[in-house]
């Protein structure tokens, strides 16, 4: 028996919107402490890891660990039928080949249930070791999205370099080059507007902008994004989900020329 009631149902809608274009199908792993998902994109270049802890739910019941394979496109279609203010409940029964999403309007005058077919997904689970990163940049998520979008109109790859001067995003393409430098800026009215650079050692790595732009679909989940880099490790682009968990995107670097 599985029953998860999320008062802020829009969070789940936003989570799906942030990952559905990157990953087609994924296993949702439910346990008593929350649910998680880990999946690579079809070309095995990026990996998404999602965690939503049970504390974030108004009601959370998971009698035993269970894994449900879902097509994220289909799940997104169903969740789009929930209003932004709706309470969303996920329900499942042991051994069932379906999952039910229940949507309740805030005033309880409209209740809908959508039953979705589950699927068997044969997916690899990767071990992600704890790492000490050379540099961790925390910045406004909207600014990061803007930079990725702007650079993608010039080139296909971005070089992200962190030095004590700041963080530099560079690209080059047929029409020319672009460099955007952000300096550490903590003298802002709101903490979420700050750019904070923690650097142990300078680092410079190259990534495909197509993936970075896909990650920025998680921007509505969080005002800030954290970018963690070490040479010869995938970059981690993390969007924290308030009080509940995170969506993390891992992207393998390009080889340096």
């Amino acid at each position: 028996m599985l029953e998860l009631r999320l008062v802020q149902g829009s969070l789940l809608k936003k989570v799906l919107e942030s990952i559905k274009d990157l990953v087609n199908d994924a296993n949702f792993d439910f346990s008593s402490s929350g649910f998680s998902l880990q999946s690579m994109d079809s070309s095995h270049v990026a990996l998404v890891a999602l965690l939503l802890k049970s504390e974030g739910f108004e009601h959370y019941r998971c009698d035993r660990n269970t894994s449900m394979g879902m097509n994220l496109g289909n799940m997104s279609k169903m969740l789009k039928c929930a209003g932004n203010d709706d309470i969303i409940t996920i329900k499942g029964d042991d051994g069932s080949d379906t999952v039910t999403f229940m949507f309740e309007s805030p005033t309880q005058d409209k209740i809908a249930d959508f039953e979705m077919k589950l699927m068997d997904i044969d997916s690899e689970h990767l071990g992600i070791p704890e790492a000490e990163y050379h540099a961790i940049v925390k910045m406004p998520s909207a600014e990061f999205a803007r930079i990725c979008k702007d650079l993608a109109s010039i080139g296909d790859t971005v070089v992200i370099s962190v030095t004590k001067e700041g963080v530099k995003f560079s690209t080059r393409g047929d029409i020319g080059t672009a460099n955007i430098v952000l300096r550490q800026n903590t003298t802002v009215d709101k903490p979420e507007d700050a750019t904070v650079i923690e650097m142990n050692e300078p680092v410079s790595m190259t990534f495909a902008l197509r993936y970075m732009n896909s990650f920025t679909k998680a921007t509505p989940l969080s005002n800030t994004v954290t970018i963690s880099m070490s040479p010869d490790l995938p970059v981690v682009v993390e969007y924290k989900i308030a009080e509940m968990g995170y969506v993390r995107f891992y992207l393998a670097p390009k080889m340096e020329e």
Partner: peptide
């Protein structure tokens, strides 16, 4: 063009 590496080159299957 910089060749793209894969995630599986960094993280192993559990």
């Amino acid at each position: 063009v910089n060749p793209q590496r894969q995630i599986t080159a960094f993280f192993s299957t559990t």
